[in-house]
Structures are given as C-alpha cells and as structure tokens.
C-alpha cells in the first residue's frame, strides 16, 4: 500500500531503516580502512616482513609505476578481452547445444553421461594437454576458459528447457504450432531469467579459466603477472594483480546484473 501521507510510525520505520543502511555502508568502509591500516602498520613496525607480505603502500607504488609505463592497462585489457571472448563463446555454444539436446531425446540421452563426466572433471588437468595441442598462446587460454564453464552451462540450460510446463507446449500445438514455435514462443522467452542467472555464474567461471590458462601459457595478462611476480619474488606485483582481479571480477558481475535489470519484465 502506498499512502500519500505516511503515518508517524511509518516515518519512524523509514528513518530507522535508512539509518541502518547508512551504518552498514559506513562499517563496510571502516572495515576496509582498518584492515589496510593494520596491514600497513604491521609492515612498518616490522611485525611482518613486507618483502614477503607486501604492504598497501608498496602495492600502490607498484601500481603507479605500472600506470606510468602504461603496461598495467595492457595486462588488464588482455585478461578482460580473453574473458569476454570465452564468455560469449560459452553462452552461444552452451545455448545452441542445449537447444540441440532438447530437440532430440536420443541425442541428449546418448550424450548425458559424457557431459556429466566432463563437467565434473577438474579442468586444470586439461591445460597441459591444451598447451601441447594448441601451443603457448591465446587459443589455449580461451579454450581452457571455455572448458571450465561450457559443460555446466549446457546442463543447466538443458535442465531448464526440459522443465518447461508441458501444458504451455500443449497450448502451442493446440494453436496449430510446431516444435519450432515451441522453441521460439515458449522456450526462448521463458528461459531468459535462467539464461541470465546462468551468465552470472559463467562470467566468474570464465575468469577462473582465463587465469588458469594465463598461469601456464601467457606472457601478458593478470594471471601471467601473478605467476611472474611469484617466480621473481616481487610480492607487491602479485598482491596488486590479485587486488585488480577482485575489482575486475566485481565489475564484470555488475555488468551482467545491469543487463538483468534492463530486460526484466
């Protein structure tokens, strides 16, 4: 109920709720400041060895240096590009294969055990083979990333498709439609929420796949920086890359959420 003149009790309730939200925001920020300052302080006072544990100031300096020679943008760009390419491929392939499985009971039943097996296989085990097959390059990274996400994507979408209300399908047939109409008028539009929630999972998985790939087969990207930094013992570089990775993954996730809000009906 929306009333034009909220009662006093309602006003008080809204005030209380606003206060609560502001407090949560303030505390979130304070927690971050607290953690960073404790970290910095411990490093300065020599409680932890800042050569091994790094420190917020060292990470910032490292970041600023890389901003100056612009190399950091190249590394971030490469990782984001690889993630987006594999994400798009996962969504498109996952969707097409799920439609194929839905359209033929025989195909889906034949392929089911293989999909289950591939889905539960730890994909990092594939990476070394991919390097041998595809070479030490971006192809390997993208294929590794796709392999992490695509099987789960297919299975989720296929399950969603096959749970479509049979009466809705019956309705289409009773109106004179065929299987194509069922696909275009019921399955596709009805699965939009499922596809989006699935995208949210997949964008994260693709990033995981890209980092695995970059660990093994790259000379650019955030995953490469992490591995390179740990090999030459530049922990500032490693920590900085991880922080950037956190931010990148949050931004990618938010991008999908934004998309979700846009096409909500």
């Amino acid at each position: 109920m929306i009333e034009t003149h909220p009662t006093l009790a309602q006003q008080a309730f809204i005030e209380k709720e606003k206060l609560h939200r502001r407090n949560v925001r303030v505390w979130r920020f304070m927690l971050l400041v607290l953690l960073l300052s404790v970290w910095e302080l411990c490093a300065r006072l020599g409680i932890i060895n800042d050569f091994i544990f790094s420190s917020p100031s060292r990470v910032t300096i490292c970041f600023l240096e890389m901003v100056k020679d612009k190399s950091i943008f190249m590394h971030i760009g490469v990782t984001v590009m690889e993630t987006l390419v594999s994400f798009v491929l996962v969504v498109v392939c996952g969707f097409l294969i799920a439609v194929l499985l839905w359209s033929s009971r025989s195909i889906s039943e034949v392929l089911e055990p293989y999909l289950v097996m591939l889905n539960s296989l730890p994909k990092s085990a594939l990476a070394p083979i991919l390097i041998v097959w595809l070479g030490n390059n971006i192809k390997t990274i993208i294929v590794a990333s796709i392999s992490v996400a695509v099987f789960g994507c297919i299975m989720t979408l296929h399950t969603g498709f096959s749970q479509t209300d049979p009466d809705k399908i019956k309705l289409i047939y009773s109106l004179g439609g065929n299987k194509k109409d069922v696909l275009l008028k019921v399955l596709l539009p009805g699965s939009v929420p499922l596809i989006i929630s699935n995208m949210k999972v997949n964008i994260g998985l693709c990033l995981v796949g890209v980092i695995i790939g970059e660990f093994l087969a790259a000379n650019k990207g955030l995953g490469y920086l992490i591995i390179y930094g740990s090999q030459v013992f530049k922990m500032d570089l490693v920590v900085m890359s991880i922080v950037i990775l956190c931010i990148v993954s949050a931004i990618l996730y938010q991008g999908i959420s934004l998309l979700e809000k846009k096409i909500k009906f």
Binding site: K168, I172, G190, V192
Partner: peptide, 29 residues
C-alpha cells in the same frame, strides 16, 4: 476446421502483453 482449446490454467505468457497473448494463435498460423 479450427478447433479452439482452452486449458485448465490460462497459460498467458508473462513476457507478452495481453494483446500479444491474444495474438499468439494468429502469429503461429
């Protein structure tokens, strides 16, 4: 002949307007 079939639940599609739902059969045919 055309046979109209009305099911137990209305099965109107949430992703279509009322006009869009009413048009569904015409669109399919």
């Amino acid at each position: 002949v055309n046979i109209g079939y009305m099911l137990q639940r209305d099965h109107l599609f949430e992703w279509r307007t009322i006009m869009g739902n009413a048009e569904l059969g015409l669109e399919i045919q």
